[in-house]
Design a protein around this nucleic acid. Structure first.
Length: 551
RNA sequence: GGUCCCAUGGUCAAGCGGUUCAAGACGCAACCCUCUCAAGGUUGAAUCCCGGGUUCGAUUCCCGGUGGGAUCACCA
C-alpha cells in the first residue's frame, strides 16, 4: 500500500465503498433526453426567502415544462446556524405556494436518497477518500489563528486572499508527515488540492447569461469541515452529480464560486451540469438598489405575503412576471392565471435583479381576487382570518352566509369590484355591516356634510326610511333616490346642478351621501343599493333613527 | 480594493444595425363615466448612463469611463 492510501485509510477506516459503488447505486434516470432535472436546495436556517421562492418557481417550471424532475435537497451541513424545524417549515411554505416537489426531502419519493446532506456523510467521505488516495485532497492542520495571520499578510501586501500557492502550507506536507500529525491527534480539515492558475481564464456557459470569462480557481478550498460534514462547494458537486441534476439553478451570488465547482467536476471526471444563475430580487433603499434582506425587509420572507393576505397565486403570478417578461402578455391574451399552461422558458429571463414592486403585486392580486366566486372568496377569507386576522374572524363567524353575501357585492358583474388587494383589506371595508362595529365607527358622530342643514338631512332620511321601496331593481331604485332628492331641492344629476347651482341645495350624490353616512358611518362604501339589500330592514331603520337623533 | 455580473421612463420591461414619433404593463397626472369608493374608458407626462470607435447608418456591435449589484469563511 502506498503512502497516500495509508493516509486515506487512516483518515477514513470506516469507508469501504468506492466512487464506482456509488455510481452503481445511483444510476441515471430513465427520462426523455430533453427532460431537465432541477432542484431546490435550501439550508434550514430560517423561513422561506422570497428569492428562494423565485428560484424554486423557475426550477419547478423548468422541470415541468420539459417533463423532468424537480426535487428538494436539504443542505443542513451548517450545524451552528441550523434552526430546529426550519426544514419542515420550508417545505410546508413551498407547498403552500403550490410548488410541490416531485422527489426528495418532504416527499416519499427518493430513488437518490438520502436528501439531507447531514445523512450523506459517508457518501462525501467515500469520494474524499479516493481524492486523498489520488493526492487530490489533503488534510490541513492550520488553526484559525494561522489562517487569520495569512489573511492579514495578504491584505497588507495587497495580494489575493485565500489558501493557495505558498500560503497553502499543508499542501506541501508529505503523507508521512500528515500521518504523524493525525496520529498525534491534531485536528484537521480536508482541502481540495487545486491545480488551477489564477492567471488562466476559463469560459463557462450560463443558461441565462451566456458565456462568462472567469479566472481559474487556485484556492485549496475546504471540502470537509472538522465536524465531518462537507462544505457547500463539495456537497453541491457530489450531490448534483449523484442525483443527476441537469441544470443547477441558484442565485447570481454563486457565479464567483463557479470556478471551484468546475474544477472539482473536472478532477472527478464528472460531466459538468448546466448552470442557470438567477438574478437577485432587490429593493430600493435610500435610493440604492440592494438585495432583499431578511433582517430589514418584511417582504423578504414569504410569510409576509401570507400575513398580509395576498393570495399565493398573486405572488406566483408576480414572480412569474419577473421571471418571464412575456408572461403578463400571455396572461392577458389567454385570460388565464394558470401558470401551468404558460410556456415557460428559462431563456427569457432578465439579467439584472428586479426591484420588488408591491404595487404591481397588489394589482395582480386585485385582478385575481376579483375573479374568484363569492364562496371561494369567503372560504379563503376565513382561512386567512383564522390564522392572521382575529377581527375579521369574529365577523365571519357571526354568520358565514351573511359574510359571503357581502363578498358577493358586484362580484358577478362584467367589471367586478376590485376593492381588495389582500385579505387584510377586507375588515376595514366591511365592518360597518355589523352593528357592534358600526357603533364603534359612529361613536364620535356621523361625518355629514356641514354645508347642508342638519334638519334637511333629517327630513330626507326620514322620508327615505318611510318610503324606500326595496323591491325596485338597481336602476329604478336609484331613480327613486333622484325623485326623493328633487322633492327637497336637490338636482337629479350633475349637469343640471352645475348649470344652475344657485337653484339647488345640492345634487343627487348629496342625497346618496346622506344615506350612505347614516347606514355605514363612512363617506365611502360599496354600492349603496347592495348595502341596502344586505342590511336588515330593522338595522336600516335603527341606523337612520340614530343618525337623525344626533345633532 | 481585486474579480465577476448588469445598464432602455419612478418600477417591470419589448427591442436583438436602418419605418418606432423607441411597444406593452404597474404607478403617476388630467379628463370622461359615476350615488361615494374600488374599478372601467380616453388622453398625457416620463427612458435608450457618458465618451470614443466600427459602419453609409447605432438604443442595438467593440473599447474605455461612470453607476449599480454580487463575491472574496471550517456559511450556504
Amino acid at each position: 500500500m502506498d503512502k497516500l492510501h495509508e493516509l486515506a485509510e487512516l483518515m477514513f477506516p470506516e469507508i469501504k465503498e468506492t466512487i464506482g459503488d456509488l455510481e452503481a447505486k445511483y444510476p441515471p434516470r430513465n427520462l426523455i433526453p430533453s427532460a431537465e432535472i432541477t432542484r431546490f436546495a435550501p439550508s434550514p436556517t430560517g423561513y422561506l426567502h422570497t428569492g428562494s421562492l423565485f428560484t424554486s418557481l423557475v426550477s419547478y417550471y423548468l422541470a415541468k415544462s420539459t417533463r423532468g424532475v424537480f426535487f428538494v435537497r436539504l443542505e443542513d451541513t451548517d450545524t451552528k446556524r441550523e434552526i430546529a424545524g426550519a426544514g419542515e417549515a420550508l417545505i410546508k411554505e413551498l407547498k403552500n405556494f403550490q410548488i410541490v416537489p416531485m422527489e426528495g426531502y418532504g416527499t416519499n419519493q427518493g430513488r437518490y436518497a438520502p436528501y439531507e446532506q447531514s445523512k450523506r456523510a459517508n457518501i462525501y467521505k467515500t469520494v474524499i477518500k479516493e481524492l486523498v488516495q489520488k493526492g487530490l485532497a489533503y488534510p490541513c492542520f492550520c488553526t484559525p489563528e494561522e489562517l487569520d495571520e495569512i489573511r492579514q499578510v495578504q491584505e497588507k501586501t495587497k495580494q489575493l486572499p485565500g489558501y493557495y500557492g505558498s500560503y497553502a502550507k499543508c499542501r506541501y506536507l508529505n503523507a508521512d508527515e500528515a500521518i504523524k500529525l493525525i496520529k498525534e491527534g491534531k485536528p484537521y480539515v480536508i482541502r481540495f488540492r487545486s491545480k488551477g492558475n489564477h492567471n488562466n481564464k476559463i469560459r463557462v456557459h450560463d443558461e441565462i447569461r451566456g458565456d462568462i470569462d472567469i479566472s481559474e480557481n487556485d484556492i485549496d478550498v475546504v471540502i470537509l469541515k472538522s465536524d465531518g460534514l462537507p462544505t457547500y462547494h463539495f456537497a453541491h458537486v457530489v450531490d448534483d452529480h449523484l442525483m443527476k441534476t441537469t441544470t443547477v439553478t441558484r442565485g447570481e451570488e454563486w457565479i464567483s464560486s463557479l470556478p471551484i465547482h468546475i474544477e472539482m467536476f473536472k478532477a472527478l471526471n464528472w460531466p459538468i451540469p448546466k448552470y442557470a444563475h438567477l438574478p437577485l430580487i432587490n429593493k430600493l433603499d435610500n435610493g440604492n438598489k440592494r438585495k432583499l434582506s431578511k433582517r430589514k425587509d418584511p417582504e423578504a420572507a414569504v410569510t409576509f405575503f401570507l400575513q398580509e393576505g395576498y393570495p399565493v397565486e398573486a405572488v406566483l403570478i408576480y414572480l412569474m412576471s419577473i421571471a418571464n417578461s412575456n408572461f403578463e402578455e400571455w396572461m392577458i391574451q389567454n385570460k388565464s392565471f394558470d401558470l401551468n399552461k404558460f410556456p415557460f422558458s428559462i431563456h427569457k429571463m432578465s439579467l439584472d435583479g428586479a426591484l420588488f414592486d408591491l404595487n404591481k403585486l397588489a394589482y395582480f392580486s386585485k385582478e385575481f381576487l376579483a375573479h374568484l366566486s363569492a364562496e371561494e372568496m369567503s372560504k379563503r377569507a376565513l382561512a386567512y382570518a383564522t390564522s392572521y386576522d382575529k377581527n375579521l374572524l369574529s365577523l365571519i363567524n357571526k354568520d358565514t352566509n351573511y359574510f359571503t353575501k357581502i363578498m358577493n357585492i358586484e362580484r358577478d358583474k362584467e367589471n367586478p369590484r376590485k376593492d381588495y388587494a389582500k385579505f387584510k383589506d377586507i375588515y376595514p371595508i366591511i365592518r360597518f355591516f355589523y352593528d357592534d362595529e358600526f357603533n364603534k365607527i359612529v361613536k364620535n358622530g356621523f361625518p355629514f356634510n356641514p354645508n347642508i342643514k342638519k334638519e334637511v338631512i333629517n327630513q330626507v332620511l326620514t322620508d327615505f326610511m318611510n318610503t324606500n321601496d326595496y323591491s325596485l331593481n338597481e336602476q329604478d331604485w336609484f331613480n327613486s333616490v333622484k325623485v326623493l332628492g328633487e322633492k327637497y331641492g336637490f338636482a337629479s344629476d350633475r349637469k343640471t346642478y352645475k348649470a344652475n347651482k344657485e337653484k339647488y341645495l345640492g345634487m343627487v350624490s348629496d342625497i346618496a351621501e346622506m344615506i350612505r353616512i347614516a347606514l355605514t358611518g363612512n363617506k365611502n362604501s360599496p354600492n349603496l343599493y347592495y348595502v341596502l339589500h344586505i342590511l336588515s330592514r330593522e338595522t336600516i331603520n335603527n341606523r337612520i333613527k340614530q343618525a337623525i337623533s344626533v345633532k
